[in-house]
Every structure is written in C-alpha cells, then in structure tokens.
C-alpha cells in the first residue's frame, strides 16, 4: 500500500483540471442556434410547407428514421414510406427524396451538424448536391 497522500492529491487536482478544462474554457460562450432557411425551389412550390412527419419528430428522430429506411430499402426490399401524419407516400431515399426538396444541404444538414459538432458520414457514399454541381 502507498500512503503518499500528497502525490495523490496533486494527481487528483491535475485530473480534475484536465477533465473540466473544456467546460471552463467554454463557459459563457454558447453559440446561438442556427436559424434555417426553407428557401428552395421545390419547397417554395409547396402549398403546405411541412416535412414528411411532424417537425418535432423529424428534428429528434431523423437519424433513426434514415437508419430504419436503410434497413427497409436494402434489407427488406420496401422502397416506399407511408407517412403517419397524412398517409402521403415517399420514395425512401436520402439522395433523391430528402435532398430533392431540401436541396440546400448547407442549411438543411450542415448548419445544425456544424453547430452540434457532429460529423455524420452520409456523404462519403451518398452523393451530395454540391458534388453534382
């Protein structure tokens, strides 16, 4: 057993220091959440500007929805999504359906992802609009 409490205390201080460093550094410096623009040609054509499910649901669950879509399309061979909100049908495709209306990926995807500091790897394979342009 070791009884060198001095070293332990010094060690603990350093540990706590290192682990709280990012919080201390960022204190009081919260960025403002991005405000997203819906100004795309396809969305402007719509009479009712609503996403495929409620805004609330999409905001919280889009990642799970996309993952479920992948399973449905690739593994189960179901390509059509029937919205629970209004029964409308959509071809399940990130590239061809989501980004068709939301053609402003910089706003629709990147703005929040940058803000939240998440880096989804969707666009390693799926073709982003800017790649085609």
């Amino acid at each position: 057993m070791m009884y060198n409490s001095r070293n332990i205390i010094i060690g603990l201080i350093i540990f706590v220091g290192i682990f709280t460093f990012p919080f201390v550094l960022g204190a009081g410096k919260a960025n403002e959440a991005p405000k997203l623009s819906l100004d795309t040609p396809k969305i402007n054509e719509l009479i009712k500007k609503e996403p495929i499910e409620t805004v609330e649901f999409m905001r919280n669950n889009h990642m799970q929805l996309l993952s479920d879509w992948k399973v449905a399309v690739v593994r189960d061979g179901n390509r059509v999504y029937v919205s629970q909100k209004d029964g409308q049908e959509y071809d399940m495709s990130l590239q061809n359906t989501c980004l068709d209306c939301h053609s402003n990926k910089e706003q629709f995807c990147d703005a929040c992802h940058t803000y939240a500091e998440v880096e989804p790897n969707c666009w390693d394979c799926h073709v982003a609009p800017e790649v085609i342009r």
Binding site: I52, N61, Q64, R79, V80, Y81, V82, K85
Partner: peptide
Amino acid sequence: SVLAGVKGKYAPG
C-alpha cells in the same frame, strides 16, 4: 425516447 423509431409504414414500390 430517441430510439422510438419511425411511425409510418413501409411498402414495396
């Protein structure tokens, strides 16, 4: 609550 999953239904084309 995050993993609640999708509400809608699936169908083949």
